Amino acid sequence: MIALNSLFELQIPGFIYKILAACLAGLLIGLEREYKGKSAGLKTNTIVAMGASIFVMISLHFENQFGVDITRVLGQVVVGVGFLGAGVIVQRENKIQGLTTAATIWCSAAAGCLAANAFYVELTLATFLIVAVNLIFGWIETSGIKN
Rank of each mutant, 00 (worst) to 15 (best):
A116D: 05
L28V: 10
G80P: 07
G138C: 05
I12D: 01
A103Q: 05
K95A: 05
L125R: 06
T71V: 05
I58D: 03
A52R: 12
I89T: 03
K43A: 12
A40Y: 09
P13H: 04
L20V: 11
G98C: 07
N117Y: 11
N5D: 12
I12A: 06
A110H: 07
G85Q: 11
A109Q: 11
I29G: 00
A115T: 01
A52I: 09
V121D: 13
F128Y: 01
E93W: 04
W139G: 05
L123M: 08
L135V: 14
C113G: 05
N134I: 03
G85T: 01
Y35P: 02
L28M: 13
I105K: 06
G87P: 08
K146S: 12
S108I: 11
A25R: 10
A132W: 12
I2V: 14
A3R: 15
A118N: 12
G67F: 12
E63F: 14
G144S: 06
V78C: 04
A111K: 07
L60R: 09
E34A: 15
L74G: 14
N147P: 00
T100E: 10
V77Q: 09
E9T: 08
R72C: 09
L123V: 05
W139F: 15
E141A: 02
Q76A: 14
A109S: 14
A22Q: 07
M50L: 12
E32R: 02
S6L: 14
F119N: 07
C113H: 03
C113R: 02
L20Y: 03
F66Q: 15
A3Q: 12
